[in-house]
Nucleic acid binder design. Structure first.
Lengths: 108, 108
DNA sequence: TACATTTGCAACCGAAAGGTTTCATAACAA
DNA sequence: TTGTTATGAAACCTTTCGGTTGCAAATGTA
């Protein structure tokens, strides 16, 4: 079982769950009510999110509140950002090239 | 077939392929040589990466060079960064809380 | 106590993922 | 022309994924 953050956010339903509980914790049923799949399906998604640390569950009576641990997304952020400079540089040099081309055309 | 960038980078082999060709384009066989799965398996990964735009293929004779289109990662970056403020704020308020606690202890 | 609510989890299912072997084809080299 | 190299792709297999129904257990309420 691969249970890392990259795999967890690959599923659109799980990304929606995260956005749903990002601002305000919700119990399992409340999360499930917002989708048209079964509660069990959502429960499984929550389990995957919990296993990689993106969600923490806090028991309150018979309810369990799901809280997003957004800082876990830094793993993804770090991985993507290592490439940002590269793609910016490439876009920059493309822009420069186009600017030079434009300048050249003006001279003619 | 879901073929978005999130799903594409969920697989560790595909992330490795990206890092491998980020600086320098490589042909299919050269990419495959760096892994201990079959060339066909790597070819399939490359197909998935191509289908979501993360890789562009350029034919040169009988070889096909794989080039990383890193700017496609901005979709992921945007999605993650929308939450950065939230998780920073929470860490900040935790830090403040701990600082206050420390200040209080000094007084005693 | 009796009943409703909230949840966990087992058992099952079809489709997709990730891998393999095998073969075909196109480009280059001798 | 003959052989080698680089690649695409079909056919197949096993495991994982995302979903279902059904049931048990714990908590709260009338």
């Amino acid at each position: 079982m691969r249970r890392d953050v990259f795999q967890a956010i690959a599923d659109p339903t799980r990304r929606e769950i995260i956005s749903m509980i990002a601002h305000k914790s919700l119990n399992v049923n409340s999360v499930a009510e917002n989708f048209d799949v079964s509660r069990t399906a959502i429960y499984k998604h929550l389990k995957i999110l919990t296993e990689c640390g993106l969600v923490k569950i806090k028991q309150q009576g018979r309810e369990r509140y799901c809280e997003a641990k957004l800082e876990k997304l830094s793993v993804v952020s770090d991985w993507v950002e290592q490439y940002r400079e590269m793609w910016n540089n490439r876009l920059d040099s493309l822009e420069n090239y186009l600017m030079e081309l434009q300048a050249k055309n003006k001279d003619e």
